[in-house]
Each structure stands twice: as C-alpha cells, then as structure tokens.
C-alpha cells in the first residue's frame, strides 16, 4: 500500500517542485559561508556531516523498526583512517583515496558485525549495538601506542582533492557535495525494491520469508548501507577538526544520531536532514545560552517532542503549521506508511 501511494507521487510536476526546493536549499548552503563567521561555517559543516549517519539510523528505523545505536563505530573508523593516513603515519591526504577506503572498510566491518548484530531485534538489538560500540571504544582507548589513547591524534594535515590542498572553505564545499550526494543516493535506495523488501520484513517476518526474501541478508545489507554512510562522514569530520579522539567511538555519540533522527521525524525523508540541523544547532545554542541548564532544556525538549508528536518529529510540526504552503513541496513526501 505504501508503495502505491509513493509511486503515485512520482509525478513530474511534483518532481519539479522538489527539484526547485532542493536547488534553493543547496544554493543557500553553498552561499552561506560567504556571509557568516568561521565558527558558524564549522557548525553548519558539522550539521551537514551529521546528515549521512543520521540517515543510517533513519533507514534502520523506518524500514526495519529497529534503533541503531552503533553508528559511532563507523564514524570512528572513518575518522581514524583519516587520522592515520593523513596524520600520524602520513601516507596521503587525498580525499579520492581516503573516502573510498573508508567506505570499503566500513562496509567490511559492517558486514562482519551485521552477521551477529542483525540477528537480534528490538531492545536486544539496541543493547547489542551499545555493547559492540563500547568494545570498539575500549579497544581504541587501550591501544595507546597506535591510537594515542585518550589524547587522540591531533596533527591531521589538511585534505587535498585531485592533488590540490583544500582550505577550510574548500572542505566545507566537499562536505556539502558529499552529503548531498549521499542524500540523493539514499533517495534512490528508498525507492528501490530493496526498501520494499525491508518493509516487508519489518511488516511480517514469516510472510517475507515465505515469498523468498533473504531476510538475514537483506537486514545485513541495511546495516551495511547505514554504516557506509557514517564511515564516509567520519573521514570529513576528522578533517574538519584536524583532530580525532576516542570520544568518536563512544556510545553516547552514537545515541545522538538516534536523537537527531527522532527529533527530525522518522516518518519523512527530510527528517534526518532537519534532525541533524535542529539537533546540532539546538544543542550548541542552548548549551552556550544556558551553560548550567542546557541538559534540562534539551532533555525536556526531546521528551516533549517524543511524547507529543512521536515519529512525526519537528518536520511533522512544521508541516502542520505550514501545511498548505508546503503541501506540494519536498516535505510532503512520506517514505513509509506504518500500516496501523
């Protein structure tokens, strides 16, 4: 049922509207660094880089109805690959080598982890994710000769693209292009048979199995897609701070992506994008406005969002407020129907 309504929306006129919205937003993001101070640009860059891992959580949530706490493993892998190859044991800082390398490593690790993590569901899946993340964290933390332990690795060189050294501004545009590319890729994936199969699995396991869907394989594939997203973002995150520490592997860090996805709204394709911007921006602003009280404020905001609108998230609130004006725009696109 979800599939029909969705393909029904693939009408050319809608695509035009969406295309316009996408182009406008991208243009804004491309022009903004010319007008704001550097720290705002760094912050926007961080938001942009949070989008792919949040999409990972979103895919696992919206397609499989599971909570994915283990994104920080892949962020950490990507970051440490950048830190080793472009910093500690300098080999290259060429993004065209580092990004695919991180992609391959993330896919490999996700494949292996997926074999046993993805066999579990619900609460057990969530805790398993946390446990594996913590195991990685303590490994990185304890191998201090190689990883620098809690001090991390600080002398990461600036990245280069096609052999040209990139400045901070250049890195911003690379981040913009990469996250935009990943968003488009995710859109493609969510409109493919793959996502239908996953929805079938989360709908009814036995039925899905009986019509010949390789249940475990498909689940593992979803985990791999999520991890690959985070791995790519990890490389760019490491370059944007020229520093990597074991906190990138901490499970609290992974939990932030879950919160971002929930805040954004897991019913909408734009949810992760909205969530990344709202979560990073809100956390930073609130914690600088009320340094003593920010935990209470953020906690209450998240709790209230979850209680009142649940999976609709901020996107849902915005849609309700400006329902008519946005009706035909990007926000309208639902990527799944919960069948309840």
């Amino acid at each position: 049922m979800g599939a029909n309504t969705r393909t029904g929306r693939m009408m050319p006129s809608y695509i035009d509207d969406r295309l316009i919205a996408t182009i406008v937003l991208t243009a804004i993001a491309a022009v903004i660094p010319l007008f704001v101070s550097e720290y705002v640009r760094t912050l926007i860059q961080r938001c942009l880089l949070w989008i792919p891992p949040t999409f990972g959580v979103y895919i696992i949530y919206s397609l499989l109805r599971q909570v994915h706490f283990a994104q920080s493993i892949f962020i950490g892998l990507g970051s440490y690959i950048a830190a080793f190859l472009a910093g500690k044991y300098f080999v290259t800082s060429e993004l065209l080598i580092l990004l695919p390398l991180s992609l391959i490593v993330s896919i490999g690790v996700a494949y292996v982890l997926g074999i046993f993590i993805m066999r579990r569901t619900g609460f057990y899946f969530a805790i398993m994710g946390i446990a594996v993340t913590m195991a990685f964290w303590s490994l990185v933390y304890k191998m201090r000769q190689i990883t620098g332990g809690s001090d991390g690795i600080s002398d990461i060189k600036n990245p280069s693209l096609f052999g040209i050294q990139l400045g901070d501004q250049g890195l911003y545009y690379v981040s913009l292009v990469v996250s935009l590319g990943l968003i488009l890729l995710m859109r493609r994936i969510l409109h493919s048979p793959f996502s239908l199969q996953l929805r079938a699995i989360s709908g009814d396991l036995q039925k899905a199995e009986s019509i010949g869907i390789p249940v475990n394989g498909m689940r593992r594939l979803a985990f791999i897609v999520a991890g690959a997203n985070a791995g790519v973002a990890g490389v760019l995150l490491a370059f944007s701070y020229n520093y990597v520490g074991p906190t990138t592997f901490a499970w609290e860090f992974g939990a932030h992506f879950v919160q971002a996805a929930i805040i954004g709204g897991v019913n909408y394709f734009v949810g992760p994008i909205v969530g990344a911007f709202v979560f990073v921006g809100l956390e930073f602003l609130v914690s600088t406005w009320f340094p003593n009280l920010w935990e209470v404020v953020i906690g209450v905001i998240v709790a209230v969002i979850v209680v009142t609108v649940g999976e609709e998230g901020v996107t849902g609130i915005v849609k309700d407020l400006f329902g008519r004006t946005l009706k035909r725009a990007n926000l309208e696109e639902r990527t799944y129907s919960d069948g309840k």
Partner: peptide
C-alpha cells in the same frame, strides 16, 4: 512504543 520509551526516558536522564 518501545523506541519512544527508550529515547524519551534517556532524555529524561539528561534532565
């Protein structure tokens, strides 16, 4: 749902 409970109560921990 369970997911809501997990996310909402963990933000309650923050509070």
């Amino acid at each position: 749902t369970d997911v809501h409970r997990m996310v909402a109560t963990s933000s309650l921990l923050l509070v």
